[in-house]
């Protein structure tokens, strides 16, 4: 008599093509992808609240320079990504001014300089025959071909990013609303902003390793944008974004894996599948949000319109 789990496996056979659960690279991909999805989601919610999507996207592009420099130097791409992004985040914070416009200018300046470097290193990588495919790896990620030690590095850096975010949570929320409001509370706004940029730099580096520099913005902003439509609370937004992110990465990985069988040898790029799912989730969230009423004027028991004050005259 077949065990229940065997029965489940059998019934899901058309979904999970042979070898999906026993494949080493798939295990690594699911683990790394899951961590990256959570980190990107949490950092992404704050990125959206703070209106720093441009910084997030720029760090991804800057990561291209770091990744290609690492390939050129013969070290693991993740080190190049993290090093370049952290330094870039530091420079952005140093030259950044407190207004969002000033932040954007600072971001743009650092971005421009880095893209020049990226062009240089990618050119070097391309003409040196020993590193064919480096460009593709840096730009589109390599979730199925991650080096064995990558899971640990990703887990550690991901934990650092999340811990930083948890530590700064409340001051970060307040200073995202208004510089003056936070400063009036005695919050060191620039220090908090710098801490956030560091968390952002790590998150972007991690997602650039997994799904590539070009698409990492989608994983950072997409799930957060979905969450913003579906919930009104910051903590819930992080939870929803994490769920959307993990769902997209895991299902995307599965589809990419299965597609090898469906397409007879050819396969869909895994990054394409993941980002496609994020986009589908975004479209769906628009429909769901429209169906959910904003309970703006719903009265709570005892709520009054007028002020609770004695009449003076």
């Amino acid at each position: 008599m077949p065990s229940p789990s065997a029965a489940v496996t059998a019934s899901l056979a058309p979904v999970f093509e042979p070898g999906f659960f026993s494949s080493g690279p798939v295990h690594v991909a699911l683990a790394v992808g899951g961590i990256v999805a959570i980190v990107s989601a949490a950092v992404g919610v704050f990125t959206v609240i703070r209106g720093q999507s441009f910084a997030g996207h720029s760090l991804a592009d800057i990561g291209t320079a770091g990744g290609s420099a690492a390939v050129w130097a013969g070290v693991s791409t993740i080190f190049g990504l993290v090093a370049f992004n952290v330094v870039a985040a530091g420079v952005m914070e140093l030259i950044g001014i407190r207004r969002p416009r000033g932040r954007d200018l600072a971001t743009g300046i650092v971005l421009g300089a880095s893209l020049g470097l990226a062009a240089l290193f990618l050119y070097e990588d391309t003409i040196s025959s020993s590193t064919t495919g480096a460009t593709v790896t840096v730009l589109f990620g390599s979730i199925f071909t991650l080096a064995p030690g990558t899971t640990t590095i990703v887990a550690v850096l991901g934990a650092v990013s999340i811990a930083l975010l948890a530590l700064l949570y409340r001051p970060l929320l307040l200073s995202s609303l208004s510089y003056d409001l936070a400063a009036a509370r005695g919050i060191p706004v620039r220090l908090v902003g710098g801490g956030f940029l560091l968390a952002l730099a790590l998150a972007v580096s991690l997602s650039a390793v997994t799904i590539g520099a070009i698409l990492s913005t989608a994983l950072l902003i997409g799930p957060a944008a979905v969450a913003e439509r579906l919930t009104r609370r910051p903590a819930r937004a992080i939870a929803v974004a994490a769920a959307v992110g993990i769902g997209s990465v895991w299902i995307g990985t599965l589809i990419a894996y299965d597609s090898t069988v469906w397409l007879g040898g050819e396969s869909l790029p895994v990054s394409f599948c993941i980002v496609g799912l994020v986009f589908v989730a975004y479209l769906a969230s628009g429909l769901i949000a429209r169906a959910l009423p904003e309970r703006r004027l719903e009265r709570r028991p005892g709520a009054r319109d007028a002020l609770a004050l004695p009449e003076v005259d």
């Binding site: 609240i49 409340r170 929320l173």
Partner: peptide
């Protein structure tokens, strides 16, 4: 304040109580 920001009025008031503290709380 951005219109779509996931933050309720009561969350902003609560930040007046403990917004300067570290940790999610």
């Amino acid at each position: 304040l951005e219109p779509d920001m996931p933050l309720r009025a009561r969350d902003l008031v609560a930040l007046g109580l403990d917004g300067h503290r570290l940790g999610p709380g």
